[in-house]
Design a protein around this nucleic acid. Structure first.
Lengths: 375, 375
DNA sequence: GTGAAAGCGCTAACAA
DNA sequence: TTGTTAGCGCTTTCAC
């Protein structure tokens, strides 16, 4: 059984009343106490190994100093750095971050939210937001300060830290256009998520800005942000438009799905089709080929979200700011100029081992690709 | 301001005494109450949206129903699945998992432990254990039930869920020997960690069992489990033994470091040197070449750890069991038979683009490698 | 089977 | 400046 010294023990040892001990230990009230007494109390506390119980304190003050963090999928490598950013800021501010996984299921998110509410968390960081999210209404009903991170909601009177998704996709599209591509398709993310919708819109806008007509900008949306869904969407996209020379994927996992579908068709990346991802997840530089992608400042996203939340907790009247972080393009080995002649639709596995035709720019292979390390 | 209905509100609404409400809501005491009254109370509770406050309850019962989880590095992809396994078991059992990152720094681990203790967690899951870990003494002094996961301590009277590290490494060594390798080196992990030490010992034992003399089993230990340290160790290893045809790395990140060092020397994997990793981290099948590695059941590791902890909490007299999970080898593209003639020590970048000599078994390339998906 | 009362460890108001 | 008192929301004796 854990045995903790209580405030009474310290008070007895220091020969003062418990409330004095409390005053000494609380930064806001320490100045109300004689230096001599404060020293005596501090000494007794140290001697007894006394740790104030923040839970009991919270019961009285109605502040738990705990923050609930909702993550859609910890196994998606984008989120751990975000979590660490959140955690580091909150810990430094004296809060405890309690993170829960939702597996992208609204029901789990709801359940986790209720557990957080029951534990009387002081605020929430939500990385799970849908564009139209019933959870938000519940959060507001509970009166809990909350900040969204990475994903945001449609009509947002709630602070959020997001990427410039449209701007990031424009970077990708422009990179491909500069390489000489015109037949560029988009494997979009789930349209119920702000990232999926914003990146899709950004793709369409960037294509238009490049003078490519709307019908030359095909899109297939994936049902979720994972490899299998990416492969499925790429398949639909390439079935409809076999002559595409480049694909902009809405995130890196979808890009990996594109890799798979290209391989299945006997097409090589980037020789036959260039692929760009989004997020620059850890190890994206290790893929085969190393993935050209849009880098987002993962950790900073978490840091800013936590700061915004602390701000919202301090003065609850503050307006709901949205912080938008700038992404940047990281060029690796999955993009190259288009081939002179697009591959025939029937091209199959036989082609796999073939070397690039002479006269073409040499394909960038995994080994030869310019490699840029993450971090 | 969050507004929660309290037990008194429910009592008033149901026309009973608060203690009766408490009895109804507590599974252990519900049978002490009339069915009629119980129904009335339940209805009132639902109507008011009453959620019992586990924190206040904990103050009284001295059980917080919270478990602290210490993770060395969430950004290492091995840990998220472990965390999810832990979380799912604990959540189902009515506990809240509070996870903290230690960045592999004992001081942070200690600080996090003290925060956990202050919050009166009911138990701990530690993924951070050093072979000789001062933290453990503190945990025992606090009287907290604890379970180790993945890493364990030297002299262990504390329950743990670990991999059969030696057995896993034997799988790797035997695989290489079967391919015809004899000049096999080991890039070991940090020797202050049980995984680093056990895998090193396993390597030496397996080499010996294969009839390879001890001096033919060179080892270089990395300072930490990351890519840079792996590259550094591989460098030392190859400087000392330039004729190695295979390297067994103590984990996947170290294996990636080996990839880097081989590339730097103008050597190709697996043509010139085969590499085996350990852990089968997510996306290991995506590397270039896809990594042959020892798969460990990440999620199950977490699940078992959580179960063991719950067991330890229920009956604190239980003996400290150690659960050892069996790994399995996953063969991908980073291993192949050795070349007839080892590459000359001076071989350099010029060699990079060279095709494999005729008459050799064709190197397994990324595209052609047998690929086995994780999950 | 139900009500009454005390108290978990702490803080905040008020009194001295 | 320090002590006193009440009570945060709950559980658990103990009476009835």
């Amino acid at each position: 059984m854990p045995k903790h010294a209580g405030i009474h023990d310290v008070a007895r040892a220091a020969g003062v009343h418990p409330s004095t001990v409390s005053r000494v230990l609380n930064a806001r009230t320490r100045h109300l106490v004689t230096a001599a007494v404060a020293a005596r109390v501090a000494a007794a506390a140290r001697r007894l190994g006394y740790t104030p119980d923040p839970v009991a304190a919270g019961l009285r003050t109605r502040r738990s100093r705990a923050i609930g963090v909702l993550i859609p999928d910890l196994a998606n490598p984008v989120f751990p750095p975000i979590v660490r950013g959140i955690e580091s800021v909150l810990t430094d501010a004296g809060y405890t971050a309690v993170v829960a996984n939702t597996d992208n299921e609204p029901a789990r998110a709801r359940a986790a939210l209720e557990r957080f509410a029951a534990r009387r968390v002081d605020g929430l960081v939500l990385a799970t937001a849908l564009r139209r999210d019933a959870l938000i209404a519940r959060v507001k009903a509970l009166g809990l300060p909350a900040v969204l991170v990475n994903r945001t909601i449609e009509a947002g009177a709630i602070p959020a830290v997001v990427n410039d998704d449209a701007g990031g996709i424009a970077l990708a599209v422009n990179h491909l256009v500069a390489l000489g591509h015109a037949a560029i398709g988009h494997v979009a993310g789930p349209q119920r998520l702000s990232t999926g919708a914003a990146r899709r819109a950004g793709y369409l806008a960037a294509m238009k800005a490049s003078g490519i007509p709307a019908r030359g900008a095909p899109v297939a949306a994936a049902r979720s942000y994972d490899i299998a869904a990416g492969a499925q969407a790429a398949r639909a996209l390439l079935d409809a438009r076999p002559h595409l020379t480049a694909i902009v994927a809405a995130n890196d996992l979808l890009a990996l799905g594109c890799y798979d579908e290209l391989a299945r068709r006997g097409l090589q990346c980037p020789r036959d089709v260039s692929v760009v991802g989004f997020n620059d997840m850890p190890f994206a530089d290790r893929f085969s080929p190393p993935l050209t992608t849009v880098h987002i400042p993962h950790r900073l996203l978490g840091v800013e979200a936590a700061r915004l939340l602390l701000e919202a907790i301090e003065r609850s009247g503050a307006p709901a700011r949205e912080v938008r972080l700038a992404p940047r393009l990281v060029v690796r080995g999955s993009t190259a100029g288009p081939r002179q002649k697009p591959v025939a639709p029937g091209a199959r596995l036989a082609q796999r081992g073939r070397r690039s035709s002479p006269g073409q720019p040499p394909p960038r292979t995994a080994a030869g690709a310019p490699r840029q390390r993450y971090r």
